[in-house]
Design a protein around this nucleic acid. Structure first.
Lengths: 254, 254
DNA sequence: GAGTGGTCTAGACCACACT
DNA sequence: GTGTGGTCTAGACCACTCC
């Protein structure tokens, strides 16, 4: 592989220079292979030496590519062992995207899970738009409650593209233990690597109030999350209603 | 400077190995100088070559130290020009810590600012604890409103340690244009480099409802922010109440 | 001991900004 | 042109894991 240089001025390339450093190109190639499922979640990818040989670049260049991927949490480095495809199934990073923390005792204990519903539907326009599908396309909706110390804390409404999650049923979800994202990786090869959340304060309506066991009108945190897989493809939309009486949403600003 | 190696087994060092890579030591040294105010906000720090010579290490080692500092936004690299002390005063990063976004039109227009109050007080226990001071120590409280398109959106209550912000008055705050954090840097040498937020949904009480021009009981986002300067020293506590009818709090998960 | 990632070095060359 | 950060290389050695 050779450094891509700036286009010659005489060449017919009116717009994008399409230039990028070697290590970025290497990074893209590795991500392509990740996306293709060449290595499964939790497995080791080839060593830096081997990748360097394979791509015909120095180890330092591969290293810089992998450094960025580690920073983006696409992979995890382990000294002496290798570099591994990141997974939501591991103990340390379970509920990586859940920022809800109890007021007392930093470490949230085990969360109880109660599945309410799992239906095949046609995507309404506002959901289809965010998931980059067409209105009316097949979509799966899952609803569930999370409990902490026996009390309902989170009411989640989850929407998934039907094309990616063929055969997903309530039974399958119930059989699986642990977070959904670990299940999605193992069962459908869909890795959530990044998400955007829109947070608002709303009042509980009659249905959510009943499910969360609070009076109608109670202020709740509405958390709308759009999750992305490789290549910035949106693959999940969910809206959570959080009861923040004894919990809070924790965020770090840098 | 030489690599600090693991302690000899015979030496009397029962606990902490106190080992760290060279580039981490360099990073600490540079941060110490930042903290000491050797270079002011927005100024250039010495070139990588010069720092390497000064510390007696290779340029690559200094580079790695500065890479981390750039990732933590302590410093900003500019190719061809140099490396600069990060500042909240620059146009691009103003309101770096404010995550509130209007529903329509990603780019928040100019925010109107209305100062309500600035008082010297004694810190109550719950504030003193978070700011790592003693209850009863001198503290400054500032209250303000932020407006968007003429409507009040944010009600902020800000608490600062009196010892660090001597002579801060309502008049001084009013004279200054732009975000508080730029003002704090320029006037008091206090750089906010990181913050933690605790977010909940609450109901507007009579006072906040009046100030934000909403009915009592309206769900509001309560955002409690603890900001830190170098060395993880907490130097500001604020609580904001956000009206999220036409705005939302945007967050990115990685 | 062999294999992996982690650190450090020295030097070459490129891209960019100022003057 | 000079000086800055940005990329790439090649090689040495260290730290950790597993056999």
């Amino acid at each position: 592989m050779r450094q891509m240089s700036a286009p010659a001025p005489s060449a017919a390339s009116p717009a994008a220079p399409a230039f990028s450093p070697l290590y970025q190109q290497i990074k893209s190639l590795i991500i392509q292979r990740l996306q293709a499922g060449e290595w499964k979640a939790g497995e080791a990818i080839p060593s830096e030496q081997e990748l360097a040989a394979r791509f015909g670049v120095s180890q330092g260049t591969v290293r810089k590519a992998i450094d960025e991927m580690a920073a983006e949490k696409l992979v995890v480095r382990r000294q002496g062992k290798g570099t591994f495809v990141a997974t939501h199934a591991e103990q340390e990073v379970r509920y990586r995207f859940l920022r809800l923390v109890p007021d007392e005792g930093e470490a949230e204990g085990k969360l109880g899970r109660q599945l309410l519903d799992c239906q095949r539907q046609r995507a309404p326009a506002w959901i289809a738009k965010q998931l980059q599908m067409r209105a009316g396309d097949a979509m799966i909706e899952v609803r569930r409650l999370l409990h902490s110390k026996g009390r309902p804390i989170v009411l989640d409404d989850i929407w998934l593209p039907g094309a990616l999650f063929k055969g997903l049923t309530l039974e399958k979800l119930e059989q699986h233990r642990g977070p959904f994202y670990g299940f999605f990786e193992a069962e459908y090869g869909v890795h959530m690597i990044r998400a955007e959340e829109k947070i608002r304060a709303v009042a509980a309506d009659t249905e959510s109030a009943a499910l969360l066991d609070v009076p109608v009108g109670t202020p709740l945190l509405s958390v709308e999350r759009l999750s992305f897989t490789y290549g910035d493809r949106p693959v999940e939309l969910r809206r959570g209603l959080y009861h923040t009486e004894a919990h809070y949403y924790r965020n770090e600003l840098n």
